[in-house]
Design a protein around this nucleic acid. Structure first.
Length: 436
RNA sequence: GUGGCUAUAGCUCAGUUGGUUAGAGCGCCUGACUGUGGCUCAGGAGGUCGAGGGUUCAAGUCCCUUUAGCCACCCCA
């Protein structure tokens, strides 16, 4: 069983049943996002490599070792590892600040990161996310965060934790970097090797090290809020108040620092325990300086993204995935008894389809019995049987698959209308089993 | 980039201390009086046991290499 070709590492074929599940997720998210006034935006799947370097940060791992980059002559483009950079670029390029300074966007689509796949982690993966650009209002932070949680709620995911923190502004971070450095330096030797490297590279990353010993070392470390400016502290407090007003419970966790360089002030994660290596379903935060850094206007912004791969895993564990993974049924199936009727069946299917019915028929030259079986497997609610005796009399057998009853209808009447009536009137019975 | 685990039919897996034509369940196909599904019964197709090499009279079973998948680290949705 040696296959000549297989899907590239870290990619996945979504077969029809799974696509149903994805579509359901998309639809549920879309509805909730649009209820909150977010409009869909679709930047390209790849951008100039330099955009990501600038936006995400040159020394982040995402940029250093996870980019799918394509060089062609003197241009270098990269498949987007995340969407914020592209949306920010689009906002700037289209001068949206002149049109309507405050705008709320959402996106749904694939992202690409060249890394080793593992649980809930693929090289091509999908994110649902939002970017609200043009407001520094702490109520917006709360809305965005609440919206992230709402998406999980709408999908039926329960038991997630909301963790929030503030990274303050540039000055806050500069000051905190010094304070944290002063705390860590004397005991640096007792941190893990990776943390020792992080100490030079990005000291904040020490805070979310998974190593227990490192965490213990950090007990009593200063937190950013302590040394932050009054304005930063007030913003953070107001975010928390607004969240409370929305009825969201959350935990303030000073170890939430996020790995992308553009974050400022409010950052947050929604975590669902028990998912494996990556239990963060949603990550996000403010990025008040990013647009300016990319050469745009000085406008603040905030966003999040939800990882669909992890969400799929969560839905499977919760037993929600299965009932949204069924292949769609065809409502009418046409059985041709003899070869003479096969062409007529195709033509009839075409007519019924044009009248809005979901119709299918046999393409494998199966026996009538086998055709019926196919119809049953496809969950057809009505089977039309076309044989010689029907043809000669200008009628067709209409079989109700739910109760097995059968009657004749004239071919020249409004067959589509009659079938519709049967389906709507419940004559063909309700779908057995599931409700809603 | 580093480490661990796995690799047998379409799917989920059994395969005893290496020993005759490699099994099950599900799925698929066919049939059970002429043109009728779901249930039942009967039958059938489908595997060079991931690939390459080695040990042996004999290997799915032991050893080596390799590839892929899964999982973990890093990092992150």
């Amino acid at each position: 069983m040696q296959l000549k070709y297989s899907a590239p590492r870290g990619t996945e074929d979504f077969l029809p049943a799974r696509v149903q599940l994805l579509n359901w997720i998309h639809a549920a998210c879309r509805q909730e996002l649009e209820r909150h006034g977010y409009l869909e935006i679709r930047p390209p799947l790849f951008e100039d490599t330099s955009l990501f370097r600038r936006a995400i940060g040159d020394v982040t791992d995402v940029v250093e070792k996870e980019m799918f980059t394509c060089e062609r002559g003197d241009t270098s483009v990269t498949f987007r590892p995340e969407a914020t950079a592209g949306v920010a670029r689009a906002y700037i390029e289209n001068k949206l600040d002149k049109v309507r300074p405050f705008q709320k966007f959402y996106y749904i689509g694939p992202m690409f990161r060249f890394e080793r796949p593992q649980a809930a982690r693929q090289r091509q993966f999908e994110q649902v996310g939002v970017e609200a650009i043009g407001s520094h209002d702490p109520r917006l932070d709360a809305e965005v965060l609440h919206l992230a949680a709402r998406l999980l709620d709408c999908l039926g995911i329960v038991g997630y934790r909301i963790l929030i923190n503030t990274l303050g502004d540039k000055d806050d971070r500069a000051q905190y970097r010094t304070a944290l450095g002063a705390f860590v330096r004397p005991r640096l030797a007792s941190f893990c090797a990776e943390c020792q490297a992080r100490f030079e590279r990005n000291i904040f990353r020490l805070l979310d090290c998974k190593n227990r010993d490192c965490q213990r070392q950090l007990e009593g470390a200063p937190s950013l809020v302590d040394s932050a400016s009054a304005a930063t502290r007030q913003h953070f407090t107001e975010v928390q108040n607004a969240l409370g007003a929305l009825g969201r419970s959350f935990e303030v966790d000073p170890r939430i620092v996020r790995g992308l360089d553009y974050y400022t002030h409010t950052v947050f994660e929604l975590r669902l325990p028990g998912l494996g290596a990556r239990d963060t379903l949603v990550g996000g935060g403010r990025y008040d300086d990013l647009l300016e850094e990319l050469g745009g206007p000085q406008v603040p912004a905030i966003g999040f993204s939800l990882g669909v791969t992890g969400t799929l895993l969560a839905l499977e564990k919760a037993g929600i995935a299965e009932k949204h993974s069924r292949e769609p049924a065809c409502t009418v199936f046409i059985v041709a008894i003899d070869d003479q009727e096969r062409l007529a069946a195709l033509v009839l299917a075409n007519e019924l389809r044009q009248n809005g019915l979901v119709v299918d028929l046999d393409f494998e030259n199966k026996s009538p019995k086998a055709q019926l079986r196919s119809a049953g497997k496809r969950d057809a609610r009505i089977v039309l049987v076309l044989g010689e005796s029907e043809r000669s009399r200008g009628v067709i057998q209409v079989k109700n698959m739910d109760d097995g009853s059968q009657h004749e209808l004239p071919m020249d009447g409004d067959l589509a209308f009659e079938l519709q009536r049967m389906l709507e009137g419940g004559n063909a019975g309700q779908r057995s089993g599931e409700n809603g």
